[in-house]
Computed example of a mutant assay.
Amino acid sequence: MELRNVRRLTGVGITPYDVVADGPGEHLGLPGSTATLVVDLADGLVLSAENRTGRTTFRCCIAGIHLRPVTIHHNGLQRGVQLDLSPTAVHAIFGMPASEISSDMVELAQVDTAFARDLHERLAETPPDDRAVVCADMLAGIEADAEIPYDAHAAWETIARRRGDITVSELVELSGWSARHLTKLFTAEFGIGPKQAARLIRFDTARELLEAGRNAGDVAAECGYADQSHMSREFTELTGYSPRGLMKRRSEEFG
């Protein structure tokens, strides 16, 4: 399920999941241009990351926009709901810029205790097929009165429309601001600069096309990479895997 422009909640993806595997395992939480909220309804969401020592267990985890993958560890049972939140949705729902949780993972209760409690309690009592509707209703009921910085979000939306295939100099020309001022506004709101945002959005686009079965050379050209080798280097830097290696790993994780 996807919400668009419901009380300014532009770009909210809601994915309930119930996965029973043959045994314990792990899978990658990939870098991307959205924040991720996971409400775990099983034994806890167990995560590890390069910037953290050991593993951390969450009940309701919100992870900000990040440039490196995290690892999800499971005991064979995964049950809950994942929400992918655009930066605009993060600001509208929680009244704070996405930069406040950039490259981090925290319990939602640290951000909004009442909402975290209500969300988990409602979903725990909800049949699997109705979880997406319950989430959507709860989000739509939020009084989104936060003032969202127009210039920063206009720049983000421009990058998103271009699917990351845009330069900082083009953004500067479109915005009317200097590169220094635009980057300052942008980083304050999102925790990353325009160039990093374009990189993540382009990666998101390329990954989705590859997962849909598109040819790697065609995807590289369509997404504005210099060539297929350039795309491969970007994938490796962001995920630790080449495009082919990442597709193979994901097919093994979820196949």
Rank of each mutant, 00 (worst) to 15 (best):
K184C: 09
T205Q: 09
M1G: 13
A109V: 13
F94K: 07
T183K: 03
V219E: 03
L3D: 01
G11I: 03
E173H: 13
L182Q: 03
P243S: 02
L83T: 04
A92G: 04
A124D: 12
A116E: 06
A35Q: 05
I192K: 00
I192V: 07
A35W: 02
E100L: 15
S33W: 00
N51M: 12
V81T: 06
A98P: 01
D18I: 14
A216F: 12
R214I: 05
G255Q: 03
A152L: 07
H153Q: 09
A144V: 11
A116P: 09
N75T: 09
S175A: 03
H73R: 11
A155M: 07
V168D: 09
A220T: 06
C223Q: 07
L246W: 02
P24E: 01
L41I: 01
S33C: 08
S169A: 15
A206M: 00
T56Q: 12
T36D: 07
A114H: 13
P87S: 00
H73V: 13
E208I: 01
E253Y: 05
T10N: 14
T15N: 09
V20Y: 10
N51D: 15
T126Q: 03
D130M: 11
A220Q: 06
V111R: 04
Y225L: 02
G95M: 02
I14D: 02
E211R: 15
K248F: 14
A155L: 05
V46T: 10
E252K: 11
E222N: 09
V219C: 00
V168K: 10
R52D: 15
R202V: 04
V39S: 07
A226P: 06
V20C: 05
T34R: 07
N51G: 13
E222S: 13
G80P: 08
H153D: 08
D104K: 05
A140L: 05
I148F: 08
H153S: 05
T36V: 14
T15F: 14
C223N: 06
K184G: 09
N215H: 13
P149E: 06
E170N: 12
E143R: 14
F190V: 00
R59N: 11
E170V: 07
L108M: 09
S48I: 08
A198M: 04
G191N: 01
M1F: 12
M247K: 07
A220E: 08
G44R: 01
D165V: 12
I72F: 13
A221I: 04
R250M: 12
G176C: 01
A136G: 04
R161H: 14
D137Q: 10
H74F: 09
A221Y: 05
C61D: 12
Q196W: 00
R52K: 15
P87H: 00
V81P: 04
S229Q: 14
L9Q: 01
L139A: 05
G64K: 02
D130W: 11
L238R: 02
A42F: 10
M247E: 13
S103E: 15
R59W: 11
V6M: 09
P243K: 02
N51K: 15
G76Y: 10
I65M: 00
G32L: 04
A109E: 14
H91I: 07
E50G: 15
A124W: 05
